[in-house]
Design a binder for these strands. Sequence first.
DNA 1: CTGTTAGCGCATTCAG
DNA 2: CTGAATGCGCTAACAG
Lengths: 358, 358
Amino acid sequence: MAASTLTEVARLAGVSPATASRVLNGSARTPGPDIADRVRQAAESLGYIPNAQAQGLAKSSSGLIGLVVHDIADPYFSVIARGVQSAARMQNRMVLLATTGGAPADEKEAVAAFAARRADSIVIAGSRSSLSEDSEGNAQLAAELDRYCRNGGQVGVVGHPIVGATATEGYHVVAVPNRELAGELAGALAAIHTGAFAIIGGPAGLFTSDDRILGFQQGLAKAGRPAADILRRRFNREGGYEAGLELAERINAGGPASETGTTAPERLCIFAANDVMAIGAAAALRSEGLRIPRDVWIAGFDDIETLRDFRPALSTVRLPLEEIGRLATFSPGETDDDGLARAVSGHVTLRRSTEPAS
Amino acid sequence: MAASTLTEVARLAGVSPATASRVLNGSARTPGPDIADRVRQAAESLGYIPNAQAQGLAKSSSGLIGLVVHDIADPYFSVIARGVQSAARMQNRMVLLATTGGAPADEKEAVAAFAARRADSIVIAGSRSSLSEDSEGNAQLAAELDRYCRNGGQVGVVGHPIVGATATEGYHVVAVPNRELAGELAGALAAIHTGAFAIIGGPAGLFTSDDRILGFQQGLAKAGRPAADILRRRFNREGGYEAGLELAERINAGGPASETGTTAPERLCIFAANDVMAIGAAAALRSEGLRIPRDVWIAGFDDIETLRDFRPALSTVRLPLEEIGRLATFSPGETDDDGLARAVSGHVTLRRSTEPAS
DNA sequence: CTGTTAGCGCATTCAG
DNA sequence: CTGAATGCGCTAACAG
């Protein structure tokens, strides 16, 4: 008892399949008003649902948008996904989801799967890495994307270009000024903090993390401050927690370094390369008896909305994540140059976690 | 320059399309090892990617799983989505995402779209409502699902059956014992709290919310306590915030009700029907100068992982959300009776936000 | 074991 | 304005 087909509808309405097709789907203009009604009624009574696969085959276009994320349950990605979803809805298309955990090899798989399904555009939200162990995967990913674009696909990458991607047509990057914003944040903090800084980030080679770390260091340098120590852990809550434990130990041992000699230990200001790590670090610091902002400061990046009620409120950089998702969603016909390349900006947001008072 | 086809591969390898199909896709056994290699090389050199639409058309099955949620950025849904995604991966299929905001009419649309794409199973994660304004939408949704199941589709519904769904074959419900667990939570709280209770929940008619509220009241009754006041707002952070403001006002005005006469106001214990509302309420309470747990207690439901580092740690009921997502993902062949109907359980988790000490 | 034939359901040329 | 034919790319019965 399979779903009914266009042909059945046509037969019931006493017309040809072609005519039925014309009235039921967006052809130039619906044929004879009398006939049209008969067809529509037939469709209704049979509970006809067009077979999108067949339509896609015939038109070679699927109405699908592929979305690649590391982890859909990570609030960073889930908010971007909401943006993509909303863009998809406006274009009435549907989104296909793939999660990869960040491995380029898996991302290549995902892109291939999207290509197989003839998705007419792909959004890649996960940040790329330049680790040597990933270079082969990156190359394959780039090749796959290249081919996809050459076959007419649209690709929107969030944040950082794919390493080695050469496609021009249909390949777009939504630039996120991670470095600049991290620099601004560093400047803002340096203006109200006299002590040392430390940085918590993801593994070396993760672009998003590296950009933010670099930007922060540059901001520090511009403010005449020495470079901060960097702790690299996994780019998630657990990584933040581990780094937090380590820093707590250092602090409790009496200051960030012994270089300060016998001076009273200064309060440390920690910059975590994303909010989720910051929250993890904060949990670790507290578990070691340190209080924020009294004993230690901490700032994050992203301004994840789910975390806004966190206490003390987290200083961070607000990023328009949902907008980013929307902007990365290109529709088939688009030619990038609707103005300049699509870029977004963010906003340094200082809150309680880095507050001078007490 | 469209992607190359099976026919082209076959021609390049000097074989028939059928043979090429056999070696490249999972037929019984790959033909002659010599031939097989030639085909594989041809495919490789052409960068052949099978057209899933065509495959689907021919096999009438798509390898697609449809997932319906209210909002993919809500942590409750995004964790369920992760579970669905992981199940999909194991069965190597892909997930199609639809967000509906909870409107039954939109959910019906989503199901129809999935049916059009010939998704071989659908997971509906959003909670259903019995509001009269939704009854027509519910009926349509039920009808749509019915038809989908009759055509061989598998449906997994999280939490509460679809109102009016009659399909038996292929229609499954992953039961979540909301009422029982809320009752347990009430009991656990009643054992350590002597004051009044209040409940914050979603709009009347939202099953998940209603079940939890009812369960909590029953638990209270069983413990010999009077029924709690109920505040109904939107089932999200904002709704929680509004309710929190209202309760703060009552508390600051001197006790939950004037019935207590001139007795010193007792500390109120608030139960929010989900964690996200609880967090919103907590923010509101604090903004009105109340401290948790000193001045007021609060408990939630779900144990959202992103919120675990919230302070004070939130008492709640842990639900295995990712597992729920996995369990709701039925593959085409399945017959529900792999043991009993799939059910999950949760775990009352008391934390700092309802701690007696001080 | 391989090649040939015939659809899967639909959109879209072409005639009428 | 409508109907008849053709093909989208692939798989699955058949034949050879």
